[in-house]
Design a protein around this nucleic acid. Structure first.
Lengths: 249, 249
DNA sequence: GCATGATTCAAACGCCCGTTTGAATCGGCC
DNA sequence: GGCCGATTCAAACGGGCGTTTGAATCATGC
């Protein structure tokens, strides 16, 4: 109707049917999950025919894949590039943990600011995807992230030589958890409403607060406390059983 | 069949039909999510008739509610009781952040050790539930956690007077994210397999590593660095644009 | 201006879903 | 033994799902 003369490789005009589907799917997946977002919802929201999804993408799973790949691959490439640049600038000397986390988080901030790269909507979708239990996502996400995980683990190992490697892997785990939860705007607990925080939907604010939290967490126990935490408080004055002891079976 | 003479209030014998359904539902929900676990899967796994779910629980949503309430309410009560006890023992003096986190996390550890309280399966289900997008969970979880959130926020505010309250609320957010992700055994990134860690399925190991991480994160910026993190590295030697600056739009 | 291939469309397909039904079965009590 | 309420069961209900189909429509090259 109103989008003449595109003429890409061999196609005619549609070009935005695909985009409209991707955009609608992204938004709906974000706040309803994959399993309970139907193609009928997506096509209704995108104002295209139901069959258009299968025509342009082949299947619902293929649509999900495209929704992610469109923005995720560039994001993860940017993370690695950022880290590469930091390391090149450091000229062989190990980076500070803070810088490494910045390399992880700053590209995400850029995405959140740029609708063309997905914007905040995509970031929230990404956060949600980490806990998506579908067979498909369990294979897809690790593949998309593998390079990032390997690269950042190497960087952190040399940035934090005093933290044993297994410990570090666990802390990376926690780091991804906090990140994905925070970026998903996952207010399952409505913590925000308890004490309304300015800019709950401002990804920049989230990220600015996230970095010191993660930096401190990653470095924990190396300077202040001796790694062995939760030192079994056992029982105190009251009865009621020592909660951390193993005695209670 | 094989479970004579129970005679509760007015019922006859079933008593374990309900329990079998709850157990099967818990396990299936855990690794498939709620939306894509059907009643037919549950009843097949529990070896009961399909209609038994609607007979005993009324609906699928009501079943989900019972699966959670069965173990979650006691867990959260134990957390508050643990914190109450710590504070009573401290006699008015503020607790250390570490102790407060311990109060959050230790009762979860107990659950993971005790199959009667849900065991590790329930903990993983709980972790997953935080990112469940269903209409129902978005109302249910905050209600279940409200008392815990309010109580622990108060404790943290007085334990960390140097951290501004909005900042603290954000950090609690991150804390819940790391916790739920870790407890869900949410290996979306298969970080563990990158460097196989002993006891990936041992909740105790997870929790022991989680506490120092969270403690350090909550205290971040109060002693070492001045709260304003990610201090805009701007550009370095190479070109390519300062990634954290706001100039790039 | 008409043939052509790409795209849209309404309709239908078969399938599985949560729920309901009504009869069969069970267990305790007179 | 016979009643009765509680429970189980097989079967079906209507509806929404992802996908497929085949015809209508469109944009273009000749």
């Amino acid at each position: 109707m109103a989008q003449g003369s595109r003429t890409k490789t061999a196609g005619r005009n549609q070009a935005d049917t695909r985009e409209r589907i991707l955009g609608a799917a992204e938004a709906l997946f974000m706040d309803r999950g994959f399993a309970s977002t139907s193609l009928r919802m997506i096509t209704a929201c995108a104002k295209v025919n139901l069959a258009a999804v299968n025509y342009h993408f082949g299947s619902k799973d293929a649509l999900i894949r495209e929704v992610f790949e469109r923005h995720l691959a560039p994001l993860n490439q940017a993370r690695i590039a950022y880290l590469d640049r930091l390391e090149a600038d450091a000229g062989g000397r190990p980076l500070s943990p803070e810088k490494i986390i910045e390399a992880m988080v700053a590209p995400a901030l850029q995405v959140s600011r740029d609708p063309l790269r997905g914007g905040a909507v995509f970031l929230r979708l990404l956060g949600r995807a980490f806990s998506e239990p579908s067979e498909y996502m369990r294979a897809f996400l690790p593949a998309q992230y593998r390079a990032v995980v390997v690269r950042f683990k190497l960087a952190l190992v040399s940035a934090l030589p005093q933290v044993p490697e297994p410990e570090l892997v666990w802390r990376m785990h926690f780091m991804f958890g906090a990140m994905s939860y925070a970026m998903a705007g996952n207010d399952a607990l409505q913590l925000i409403s308890t004490c309304n925080v300015e800019g709950a939907d401002d990804a920049e604010a989230v990220i600015r607060r996230l970095v010191p939290f993660l930096t401190a967490g990653l470095q924990a126990g190396v300077t202040p406390s001796p790694l062995k935490a939760v030192p079994v408080p056992a029982r105190r004055s009251r009865g009621g059983g020592g909660v951390m002891t193993r005695s209670a079976a």
